[in-house]
């Protein structure tokens, strides 16, 4: 149970790191979105074993419930992650407008626009 969750987190981190190390900005964006999800899973796995626990809605005090704190943190993280992803999308847009390329390698090899 724990092992599976931890393995999944590891795989997602590996994949997203690989994506971020790519040259294409679109892949970097995908890598970022994926890494945000993976980080959420890290937090989520902190809630422990969900089996035999109910959702953290207190209707009956006797039932054991899942830890609400990581969930609240993740909820915040999802929304913030989306906001940052949206910012990245606009950044991608702008980079393409300025450079006509989505390749980080090509972009950093080039001169700055003001140098021309």
């Amino acid at each position: 149970m724990f092992l599976v969750s931890a393995l999944l987190v590891g795989i997602l981190f590996a994949v997203s790191t690989y994506l971020i190390l790519q040259g294409s900005f679109v892949r970097i964006l995908f890598g970022f979105i994926l890494i945000a999800n993976a980080a959420n899973l890290v937090l989520l796995s902190m809630t422990g074993d969900p089996r035999g626990r109910a959702a953290p809605v207190v209707l009956d005090e006797t039932v054991p419930m899942a830890d609400p704190l990581p969930q609240a943190l993740i909820l915040t993280a999802i929304v913030i992650g989306f906001a940052v992803a949206a910012y990245f999308v606009f950044l991608l847009y702008r980079i393409f407008l300025d450079w006509k390329t989505d390749d980080a390698l090509a972009l950093f090899a080039k001169k700055k626009p003001t140098d021309l």
Binding site: S5, L12, F13, A14, Y18
Partner: peptide
């Protein structure tokens, strides 16, 4: 790239597992 990614993945796996 593949090596670095695998290293990060492995680190995060151990970290998460240890934390749980």
């Amino acid at each position: 790239n593949i090596g670095v990614s695998c290293a990060v993945g492995g680190t995060m796996f151990l970290l998460t597992y240890g934390a749980i």
